Computed example of a mutant assay.
Amino acid sequence: TIGQALTSLVEQARELHCLDGLPQATNKLYNNNNTARTASQIVGCGNLFQVLCCDFDDANGKDHHDDSHVIVLDGENIPSYRACTIIGRCVYNESDLARILQVDKHKFIVPPLSSFLTSSFHHFVSEGYKQIQVKDGYHLIVIDPPWNNKSVKRKKSYHMVEETNLKQIRIQDLAGRDSLVCVWITNNERLKGFIIDDLFPHWSVDFVAEWFWMKVTRSGEPVCDVLSPHKKP
């Protein structure tokens, strides 16, 4: 289950000393708010990769890494790479155990039997998608686009994408025969209409259901009014 996988990954992260300094959870992980608050105070790498992806596009992908488009994590040694050499390359952990990848001064935990590609949107839709294709396609594809919204525009926290550009994603080259495609959206009826009436037909994807992510407090109460027209819990 997802819970078991999460527990296993956290345990491996502790064994690799990636969570040193954090308190041990005394109850179920998903109900331990104190641990979550402590973890959230850890300073990550900020917008490092976002900036590098933009630089990668500006340089047309040249001189940012060697000819190898793949990095394979194996053995117990911690591989170290400069951040700019990660962009546009697929990183694989083919081990049954989690591995640590060091990028500049930052360390990342890569789950077992997993891979990832750090790429700009432009590179992904033009070439990057080919690097992550798998035989028979993916069973599940989850897309969380950086939608245009006033809060992000005001804070300038990340680059946003115009919704029509999502049509450039080659879902037909990534999905399997009976794949499930999930797209997160904000509480915006216009975006919902775009996905159901425009984007999904363009991808030859059938709309089957709408799911809601219900955020609740420890006591089970919604974090805000369910009927609020502005913000959903």
Rank of each mutant, 00 (worst) to 15 (best):
111 P>E: 14
67 D>S: 13
82 R>D: 13
30 Y>G: 07
17 H>T: 02
58 D>T: 11
13 A>R: 12
101 L>R: 03
69 H>E: 13
56 F>E: 06
79 P>C: 06
98 A>T: 14
89 R>N: 09
36 A>N: 09
92 Y>R: 07
33 N>F: 14
68 S>Y: 02
11 E>G: 03
52 L>T: 08
107 K>C: 14
55 D>T: 11
79 P>Y: 01
22 L>M: 10
21 G>W: 11
92 Y>H: 11
51 V>Y: 05
42 I>G: 02
55 D>F: 10
41 Q>L: 15
17 H>K: 02
27 N>C: 09
97 L>N: 10
92 Y>L: 12
69 H>L: 07
114 S>R: 07
102 Q>T: 14
83 A>M: 10
109 I>S: 02
60 N>L: 08
54 C>D: 11
68 S>E: 09
90 C>P: 01
102 Q>Y: 08
94 E>H: 03
31 N>Y: 15
121 F>L: 06
57 D>W: 10
64 H>Y: 11
41 Q>H: 06
44 G>H: 03
127 E>L: 10
40 S>R: 00
109 I>L: 07
80 S>T: 15
75 G>M: 07
129 Y>V: 05
110 V>R: 01
11 E>N: 09
51 V>I: 13
125 V>L: 05
61 G>F: 02
96 D>K: 12
12 Q>G: 05
106 H>S: 12
69 H>F: 10
25 A>R: 09
79 P>N: 04
106 H>N: 09
43 V>L: 12
62 K>R: 09
102 Q>P: 02
19 L>A: 05
57 D>K: 04
109 I>P: 01
112 P>T: 13
26 T>Y: 09
106 H>I: 05
98 A>C: 11
44 G>L: 09
90 C>I: 15
128 G>R: 04
86 I>K: 00
123 H>Q: 05
121 F>W: 07
12 Q>A: 13
101 L>A: 12
19 L>V: 07
84 C>K: 05
36 A>D: 08
22 L>G: 11
130 K>N: 10
52 L>M: 12
9 L>A: 05
53 C>T: 11
12 Q>S: 09
117 L>M: 12
75 G>D: 07
100 I>K: 00
48 L>I: 14
24 Q>Y: 06
90 C>H: 10
9 L>H: 06
114 S>H: 06
67 D>P: 00
